[in-house]
Amino acid sequence: MELKDLIKPENLVYGKSRLLEEEIMHYCPGCSHGVVHKILAELIEEMGLQEKTIGIAPVGCAVFAYNYIDIDWQEAAHGRAPAVATGISRLMPDKFVFSYQGDGDLASIGTAEIMHACNRGENILVIFINNGIYGMTGGQMAPTTLEGMVTATTPTGRDVARNGYPLKITNLIAQLPGTSYVTRQAVHTAASARKCKRSIKKAIQNVLDKKGTSFVEVVSTCSSGWKMTPVASNKWMEENMIAYYPLGDLKDSVKGENVLEN
């Protein structure tokens, strides 16, 4: 039997979402962005939302997210994705609007925009990729960089006396009455990716049900920035990042406030 004989619809066990474009992703090996993109594309397709969806791409590695998923996109200035999403969502309240931001974008330069969008309870989904580093600009310190972590701008490790503390912005977001669902997930194993997909699905449903802001942090790897192999990155992330940014729901307004005091 040859390979071509095996490629038949009845033998299909796994397929790429038809919303994922035939583009070669620019992401580095081991990067979490690709998995999160895949999850989003799958959910938008499965939930029949292509015609309703407008995505906001950030400044940072995910700036080219608009090349990879076959939906309408707007590319925002650094940190401003939640304001851009607000403008779109307010004028088209029946659409599904999501923003996609990294840690420098969301938790540093865009702190005001994310806090106020969440505080207004903008009816949007926010995907927050937290890999503790600025990937695109070459591995500088992010607000979420762990204490002691070496980056291009903390060559001897993050010194909290000089640089302040790694920011658990998701915990702050969970305190805001405008948010309905706030969770922290990861995609470094098949199991965690499946769980993350369930969380994002729930977040999307919340937006469709007009429950306010849903916020999904994805604790992520940056093999290039961390200067580790993909496998080592996953291990390091489990032992260090997840230890400081524990996974789980921080708030689920359907179940009750602040289910986890992470």
């Binding site: 707007q74 401003r80 304001a83 851009v84 607000t86 403008g87 307010r90 004028l91 925009e113 106020h116």
Partner: peptide
Amino acid sequence: VASINMVYGA
């Protein structure tokens, strides 16, 4: 800053 970016989105 937020105003003009809301305008951009809108």
